[in-house]
Simulated scan of single mutants.
Amino acid sequence: MTATTCLPLVRDEAWLPVEEAAQVGRVRRAATALAERLGFSPTRTAEIGLAATEISTNLYKHARQGVVVVRSLRGLRDAAVEIVAVDRGPGIGDLALAWEDGQSTTGTLGVGLGAVARLATSCSMTSRLDVGTALVARFELLRDREPEWGQESAAGITRPINGEDVCGDAYAVCRRADRLTLMMCDGSGHGPLAAAASDAAVRLFRDLPPLPPDQVVARLHAELRGTRGGAVAVADIDLVDRTVRYCGLGNIAAAVLADGRKQGMISVPGVAGHQARTIRAYDYQLPDKAVVVMHSDGLTERWGADQVSDLVLDPPVLIATTLLRDAGVRNDDACVLVARPA
């Protein structure tokens, strides 16, 4: 049997707005505190603090409605700090030029993004003029060591409802040589009890052997009894046959994006752990260069393929972050999971 590898557990530790100069220091402190908790050396922690300062200063000076997300990644061997920045600013017309030292639109030295790229293990950015920019920078324990999980073909992002510190939505991704399997759970309600249900779904999913999506959802339904329960969905992507088998229970939305079109995938009514009259999987074609998107109801379903069609070559985390910025609603927990199968 082909070995199954679960991608690192990702936790969005803090969503921090950057609209005032004083908020730059808050981002730096959050990033360095996380690095210390993960066991980074003082030197590496200081490098992460410098990068966090550069990223958030850039948001404060150039952007509107800028936000930084400080994230932890934990694998079996490695840990990483990831910083995601997103804004509704003027956008950047020449991304290659923006990475060069000396480029600035405010009369400063303009060394920020170049310094971030040198300090990070990996760094990517996407931007649309008059819409905004999104950036992700990952920092491994050792800058030059290849991480155990390599380059992800799927990634997600979560955001708690206003007033809560934890998000009740969660996701996980496992891969084999010929398959990529995505799972999302939207815990019922908000706060710690919703998060406990979705965390239980993540643990079970990561421990299960390879099973068809409807069997995985049935197992999740059984195991979530005694918790708040929630909506759950599993998408099993066959990388050889280029198909997706999808099973959703409750209000998880999913779609295949390809050739400028958005094909929705079907979820049936129910609440995992409480009510499931029918658990059924559906099959969909996966064209070349297609992207698979899953999201909780913290996003409106009224977004179109045109909002993502020019992002399909970007890292999945930037696609997810941009979609959350453009379609997210703040009166609910939100989760977006994106797969870009190669």
Rank of each mutant, 00 (worst) to 15 (best):
V131E: 04
F139R: 06
A46N: 10
M265R: 03
L16P: 03
R128A: 05
L220A: 01
P341F: 13
A327H: 05
V68H: 02
A235Q: 05
T4M: 07
Y282N: 06
E152Y: 00
G270W: 03
A272G: 09
L142W: 07
L119M: 14
G187N: 06
E146F: 14
V69S: 04
S104T: 15
Q151F: 04
G191K: 08
N331L: 12
E100P: 02
A14G: 08
R340C: 03
T300G: 12
W99L: 09
D130R: 12
D259T: 11
E140D: 14
V111I: 11
A339S: 03
C123E: 03
V166G: 01
G91S: 08
R175I: 01
A134W: 00
T158W: 07
A134C: 03
L129P: 09
G110N: 13
A115Q: 09
V256Q: 01
G150Q: 05
L76A: 15
D306F: 01
L95Y: 04
R71I: 01
G110D: 12
H190C: 09
L193Y: 14
D169F: 02
T105D: 10
R225G: 10
D214R: 09
E164N: 07
D326V: 00
I92E: 00
R118A: 08
R44T: 05
A80H: 07
A52F: 12
R11H: 09
G189F: 08
A334S: 11
G66I: 13
A137K: 03
A46V: 09
A196M: 12
L119R: 08
A320W: 01
G110T: 15
Q103V: 13
V173C: 02
L38I: 10
A14C: 07
Q215A: 10
L95E: 06
G304H: 13
G93M: 08
R179W: 10
G66H: 13
R29K: 15
L299Y: 15
A201P: 06
R175H: 02
S188G: 06
V244I: 14
L257N: 00
G168D: 06
V232T: 14
D130P: 03
D297R: 09
T45Y: 02
M125E: 02
A194P: 07
